[in-house]
């Protein structure tokens, strides 16, 4: 077969195109693998979760919020437009709109519920992130890579729990006392609760859990049948926020 210059260029061009397409194919095939391995029924050795016992939560107490926001350099921006929060309180009716009715008893009506990122089993924020800046770790923590976040805020639209905050402005002037061991954030990135992954790495429990004097917050591995969280889940009736959305929230509430 005789190949003229034109033909050679055509073949060469196709070759180059193939090389360019290869990484895309790799990514697509990898994505399929990842999907397959996270299917239900696969044995997971660790799944971190939290139980919030609202019965033990004392009204007016903000110890967990102060501890979390202090450790993680969360700015205290007072206006609701720009505010950033990782853990906060909301009235029971707003936190559990599906459970709302006229005769809510047990002192729950209007009483504050502690809210934070649900570290969902099937997180919609992770699904929509165009850069994998937010991702789910093998132990279930839904993490943010602040280095990679482009600030498109797709995750904020996707989160049905309002757990995500955006840095509308430089947060540093609003941090009263900076914890030098943990970075602050920069303007233009999204942030949220990280289940204290940096403390877990040192063998510590989350700051909010540690700070709660009333044992309203319990943290642990729900895959371990002997763990404290499993014991509490066994002996108490618990509910989750908006379970009908299929996100599989991992914060359980005792009301």
């Amino acid at each position: 077969m005789k190949i003229d210059r034109r033909g050679f260029l055509k073949i060469g061009g196709l070759g180059i195109l193939g090389v360019a397409v290869k990484p895309v194919i790799d990514v697509v095939s990898k994505a399929k693998l990842a999907e397959a391995s996270s299917k239900k029924g696969v044995l997971v050795e660790k799944r971190l979760a939290m139980v919030v016992n609202l019965k033990n939560c004392k009204e007016g107490c903000t110890d967990c919020i102060a501890a979390c926001h202090g450790v993680h350099n969360v700015p205290d921006i007072a206006n609701p437009k720009d505010e950033v929060k990782w853990i906060w309180t909301e009235s029971y009716e707003n936190a559990f709109p599906d459970q709302e009715h006229r005769f809510i008893g047990g002192g729950m009506k209007g009483s504050p519920a502690i809210l934070l990122c649900n570290h969902c089993d099937n997180p919609s924020c992770v699904r929509v992130c165009p850069t994998k800046a937010t991702f789910k770790r093998e132990d279930g923590i839904v993490m943010m890579d602040y280095h990679r976040c482009i600030g498109c805020r797709f995750c904020m639209a996707a989160c049905p729990y309002g757990s995500r905050s955006f840095n509308w402005r430089d947060p540093r002037p609003f941090i009263k006392k900076v914890n030098p061991e943990f970075p602050t954030r920069t303007k233009g990135v999204v942030e949220k609760c990280n289940f204290c992954e940096e403390r877990l790495a040192k063998g510590l429990i989350p700051a909010c859990v540690e700070s709660c004097k009333n044992k309203a917050l319990v943290f642990g591995n729900v895959e371990d049948p002997n763990s404290e969280v499993r014991e509490i889940l066994r002996s108490n009736y618990t509910i989750r926020r908006k379970p009908g959305l299929g996100t599989g929230p991992q914060i359980y509430y005792i009301v």
């Binding site: 990484p23 895309v24 699904r127 992130c129 165009p130 797709f154």
Partner: peptide, 10 residues
């Protein structure tokens, strides 16, 4: 980053 870390689920 959208191109550098292509994410087909997004």
């Amino acid at each position: 980053n959208i191109v550098l870390y292509p994410t087909p689920s997004s």
